[in-house]
Nucleic acid binder design. Structure first.
Length: 448
RNA sequence: GGCCCGUUCGUCUAGUGGUUAGGACAUCUGGUUUUCAUCCAGGCAACAGGAGUUCGAUUCUCCUACGGGCUACCA
């Protein structure tokens, strides 16, 4: 049995966006789930638009995602001679012809003229004029087209370079690709490529065309539409496993299952089904996957993944991590949600102060601060007792003092239990922040 | 315009010639939480439309509508 071999073949004219990443994932899984190989080929025959930096970016993106390709990266720009060889062969056998490169219909008159090549001519492939071209697509089923709908397409430009549809065929042949898994924007090219293969008397590989991803507005995902590059998700604090899992489930399914780790994917891919229709991207669901994978990580793994100054692996940072992890669904949210544990809040939102601090707040907090100072055991349960006593003393609800206190300590109105926050912050910092806050709201007292 | 492909809750999807059409995300309502988030319980919500085939169609066929792709000396 021959080895399954697939490839992903981007052109380096931009960074790797999630649509491409998903297509690559499918091609890769198709091979890996059958102990096959998958290689990366950079289609850089368009010298104008191809950039080395994009090639690097693409390779880095896959590294981050955990999609590893086999063999060495193939560059089409290295194969110019090979393409020329095939074009010559086609010409020799009368399967292609030289023409002026005008309208296909006009050029067609040169089919049997045997013109000689120069810097003003192009080479066109002779498409069969009758019959139909049919193939069995592993995701879309049988697809066919009448041959008379197909133009004789250009395979060699006037500058002597080969075009996409020729290069693809030659490279796939030379690399012994068995399954061509690619985006469905290539279905129409497939008919051209199959006919070249037939002319060359070569075996036609199996094709599978996966649908595209649409942006959240339902329109085609494009760079202008916020089609973020794979690396941008990294900088948003998305885990590679989460993005991979999300991308897999976008268009592929195995019953009602949602969670697939790297190993699960390889095991299950062949049993699932690929959808035929385009799918709409959803950040919400990606975030849900991200939260799921974040929840699975140990504190140590999180510290490692965060690699931040604050979460340095000290006992304190681990404790903080533990208490805030439920409220974080991206890596980035950890430092956002933990800021006040590491340094004093700088900017207090005036609107919040006005909203939650009434004229009595100064008096309430002052007494609370006094009682805190006298407290012997600085632990959550005792801190809570103190707060309750103060509340009882003033005969007020918890919110009357809890919110201002939370504001004083964290500069926000959402945080873990306020008594816990006090304990973690320590007595000194707690007292200091209340003190500072008191001077801030002092004027407020007289104003109202 | 021509050609190719597609269409199940708002979104990702499961599924079947006879089902209360299932799950997940989002949303809503309760519970837990002195706040927020988490968590738990529950609710709302879909077979694009029209013909046919059939005892019966969401499922099979055709038409229409809508969506996407291609239609380059780009890939």
């Amino acid at each position: 049995m021959s080895v399954v071999k697939t490839r992903f073949a981007p052109s380096p004219t931009g960074y790797l966006h999630i649509g491409g990443a998903r297509t690559a994932l499918f091609a890769w899984l198709h091979a890996k789930s059958q102990n096959g190989e998958c290689l990366l080929r950079i289609e850089d025959t368009d010298k104008e638009r191809s950039k080395d930096e994009f090639t690097k970016e693409i390779i880095e993106s896959f590294k981050w995602l955990g999609v590893e390709f086999d063999e060495e990266v193939v560059f089409q720009s290295n194969n110019a001679n090979r393409y020329k060889e095939i074009i010559d062969q086609l010409l020799d056998q009368g399967l292609a012809y030289v023409c002026k490169g005008e309208d296909p219909e006009i050029d067609k008159q040169c089919r049997d003229k045997n013109l000689s090549r120069d810097e003003n001519t192009v080479v066109r492939f002779k498409m069969p004029e009758k019959g139909i071209t049919v193939y069995e697509d592993i995701v879309k089923g049988q697809i066919q087209v009448e041959n008379d709908r197909l133009d004789d397409f250009i395979i060699e430009r006037s500058d002597g370079s080969a075009t996409y549809n020729l290069c693809v065929v030659v490279d796939d042949l030379d690399s012994k690709i068995t399954h061509v898994i690619r985006g469905d924007d290539h279905v129409n090219n497939t008919f051209k490529q199959i006919n070249v293969l037939k002319a060359l008397n070569k075996e036609v590989p199996t094709y599978g065309h996966v649908p595209m991803i649409l942006g959240e507005d339902g329109k085609r995902l494009s760079k202008r539409h916020g089609a973020l590059g794979v690396r941008e998700y990294e900088s948003l604090g998305i885990l590679p496993e989460a993005l991979k899992n999300y991308l897999l489930r976008l268009g592929w399914s195995l019953g009602d299952d949602e969670i697939f780790t790297g190993e699960d994917m390889k095991k299950s891919f062949q049993s699932g089904i690929l959808n035929k229709s385009p799918a709409t991207f959803s950040m919400d669901k990606l975030l849900w996957f991200n939260k799921y994978y974040l929840d699975q990580m140990s504190v140590d793994q999180l510290i490692e993944a965060l690699s931040s100054k604050e979460f340095d692996g000290s006992q304190y940072s681990k404790t903080i991590l533990h208490t805030i992890r439920d409220r974080c669904s991206t890596l980035n949210e950890f430092s956002i949600n933990a800021g006040y544990f590491f340094k004093d809040p700088k900017n207090y939102d005036e609107a919040l102060i006005i909203k939650y601090c009434k004229k009595d707040s100064f008096e309430h907090l002052s007494l609370l601060r006094e009682k805190f100072e006298e407290l012997k055991n600085w632990e959550q349960i005792y801190i809570k007792e103190v707060i309750e006593k103060v509340i009882a003393h003033f005969e007020i609800g918890f919110g009357k003092i809890g919110l201002p206190l939370r504001l004083a300590l964290t500069a926000t109105v959402n945080s873990p239990s306020i008594d816990l926050v006090c304990q973690l912050l320590g007595r000194d910092i707690t007292l200091n922040r209340i003190e500072k806050f008191l001077t801030m709201i002092k004027d407020l007292k007289t104003d109202q």
